[in-house]
Design a protein around this nucleic acid. Structure first.
Length: 598
RNA sequence: GGAUCCGUAGCUCAGUUGGAUAGAGCACUUGGCUUCGAACCAAGGGGCCGGGGGUUCGAGUCCCUCCGGAUCCGCCA
């Protein structure tokens, strides 16, 4: 009887995807209802709270009262007294300390949230308001052709992919752009060597290694022989003038490179919408020189065309070089052309440049220049942001290299991750058939690499340690994937489909401490997503998923799911199903694949 | 020389426009599998948040200064 009443109540309560937003608007309207003089100035500052204090807390009253020389505690009391009745139905509200307002969700509210979000479709509806009607370009990976991707390329690819997925889930139209370096000065020497020294066997076997070898041949030969250097320069001039033969070689090098890159992207589950490299903007730089010169932004200096920023402490003397002394374009030229193209062609709200933080000077100069350029030409500048990230370091605290000092190839790194994962799977799950073990290892190996990268604040340098990465413990991919596999296992044993909507019909309200702790964590998915998206830092979502998996493990250990009592069993299955949904959704948003058995 | 970022437990790291007693993991100690996957869980010790000064109801967070580290600074990207 009690259970039935609670069930009806839960159904009647309206719950939003993001409960913090409900409390925010409730407090704002309470400020008006309470007759605050400048009620609209109150920013409630609702955030997820330490569980000791409740589920959410509002800190904004403190600042509001301080600015007006009011007693913060009394202000909070007035505000709480004026809260809409609906808030009282969903949670307990208390005032603590100098004027913190604490919200503790009632079990029925938790239950209602779980019922209201049975599938990814409902999560998407809730999440997709944040970036609705916006178009974002995510510029990431961006390797140079004719070279292999090395460990330095990992972070851009992994972080960029996660951000692209997070923005898309938040309702934005996302254009994933691989801004490949396909137009460098290296092509002169490369083409020179390609015409003379190409090993076709090697080309078909290991094309990138062959290109790298050819470049080295071209480079060393040109260094030794000035005549060769002139020939190589001539090859570059011919290419840039559109010589059919050189253009064909250039195209072949790029096509083969992209196909090789794609094998890495497949492993990482990355798919670009466009790959508009530097060559694409080759014919679009003259307009840049012209416009910036006409506007007086660009001036000649030491033979080059450059932009100074006189008001800036550093860029008044450190120019942005947009055309080299020899008349050729560089990456500043193409980057400016790229901004214009993204503005005109994609009508972009903004563009995110997922690039090493060592290039922050370049982007500061670039964005400052674009800002003045767009303002002077009466255009609206999209939001441009450099998504910087730190260097991958080895255990010696220096940039990660092989023992012989070479860059570690990304392909080798992923292969090694897979091998280590296979050793682990074979040790822990010897009963799984070898073929499936290999499949699991492929997934776990790559996921571990991705997750290790994403789980740390991207701006910090990142210490690469195999043992930490492939480890099963702590904040690692394997720990999260294990939780996913274990939940699948429960449903498999019981012969129930976790996505079936009828799980909760017999459920009674949550009771045990572990059930409630888990449910309280589940409803905060939206807040973790929000942190990750607004700050463009995936590690907030990683941390949440890790804590969620931890709360699930605690629940799993304390409360048996497959019990006789149908009501208890139903509500625990509901918790399992939602934990599974959020873990899988969250991991997929980070770019990871999940599995059912490991 | 100029500039940017960083310094939190033995190690690796979180700490969201300044908020409540600074949090995790690893390592260490102890306990838990005849019961849904122990690749798990529970409990414990461990901190002048680099030093000093300032701003205020409140500072790991903001300002100043010193010490230590990383990175960038004209035609590579």
């Amino acid at each position: 009887m009690r259970a039935a009443r609670a069930f009806r109540f839960a159904r009647a309560v309206h719950v939003s995807f993001n409960l913090a937003l409900d409390f925010d608007s409730a407090l704002r309207s309470a400020a008006t209802a309470a007759g605050f003089a400048d009620a609209e100035a109150l920013n409630p500052e609702v955030r997820v709270s330490d569980p000791r204090h409740g589920d959410y807390q509002a800190n904004g009253v403190l600042g509001y009262a301080k600015a007006r020389k009011l007693n913060p505690r009394a202000t909070a009391e007035k505000l709480v007294a004026a809260l809409p009745a609906s808030v009282r139905e969903t949670c307990d509200v208390t005032i603590a300390g100098p004027g913190f307002i604490n919200f503790t969700l009632k079990p029925a509210t938790l239950f209602a949230w779980l019922r209201a979000h049975p599938s990814i479709a409902q999560l998407r509806v809730g999440a997709a308001t944040a970036k609705r009607d916006q178009t974002w370009i995510v510029d990431y990976s961006s390797p140079n052709t004719a070279k292999q991707m090395h460990v330095g390329h990992l972070r851009s690819a992994v972080i960029g992919e996660a951000l692209a997925r997070l923005l898309a889930f938040s309702g934005a139209k996302v254009v994933r752009d691989n801004h490949i370096g396909d137009w460098g000065t290296q092509f002169g020497k490369l083409i020179w060597a390609y015409k003379r020294q190409l090993n076709t066997d090697a080309l078909s076997r290991e094309p990138l290694e062959e290109f790298e070898r050819l470049y080295k041949v071209g480079n060393s030969t040109a260094e030794a022989d000035p005549a060769v250097l002139d020939e190589a320069r001539a090859e570059l001039v011919k290419l840039q003038a559109g010589d059919p033969e050189n253009l064909a070689i250039w195209k072949k090098i790029n096509d083969v490179s992209l196909a090789a890159f794609q094998r890495i992207y497949d492993q990482l589950d990355i798919r670009f919408d466009v790959a508009l490299g530097e060559s694409f903007y080759n014919d679009k730089t003259d307009q840049i020189y012209r416009e910036l010169s006409d506007l007086g932004l660009a001036v000649e200096s030491e033979g080059a065309l450059v932009v100074f920023h006189p008001e800036h402490p550093r860029f008044k003397e450190q120019p942005l070089i947009i055309r080299k002394r020899d008349g050729a374009a560089n990456y500043a030229s193409t980057d400016l052309a790229t901004i214009l193209y993204r503005f005109e062609h994609f009508k972009a709200t903004g563009a995110l440049y997922v690039v090493d933080k060592r290039q922050s000077d370049h982007f500061d100069q670039l964005f400052l220049t674009a800002q003045k350029w767009f303002a002077a030409s009466h255009r609206t500048l999209p939001h441009l942001e450099h998504i910087d990230f730190g260097t991958v370091l080895g255990e010696d605290n220096k940039p990660l290299k092989t023992r012989s000092g070479e860059n570690i190839k990304l392909r080798d790194l992923l292969t090694e991750a897979e091998a280590r994962a296979l050793a682990l799977v074979s040790e822990r799950s010897p009963d799984i058939p070898a073929e499936e073990r290999a499949e699991i290892a492929r997934l776990v190996g790559v996921a571990s690499v991705q997750y290790a990268d994403l789980s740390q604040n991207r701006s910090s340098d990142y210490l690469f340690a195999w043992d930490k990465m492939i480890s099963l413990e702590g904040n690692t991919a394997a720990y999260l994937l294990y939780a996913v596999a274990r939940i699948h296992s429960i449903f498999r044993k019981l012969g129930i489909d976790p996505t079936a909507g009828e799980l909760d019909t017999a459920a009674t309200p949550l009771e045990t401490a572990e059930e409630l702790t888990l449910a309280r964590k589940l409803v905060k998915f939206s807040n973790a997503l929000d942190s990750a998206v607004t700050q463009l830092r995936p590690h907030f979502l990683c941390l949440y998923l890790y804590e969620l998996a931890g709360d699930f493990s605690g629940f799993y250990n304390a409360d048996k799911v497959a019990v006789e009592d149908p009501a208890i069993r139903a509500r625990r299955l509901l918790l399992c199903a939602r934990t599974l949904l959020l873990l899988e959704t969250g991991l997929n948003l980070l770019g990871l694949r999940t599995l059912r058995r490991m």
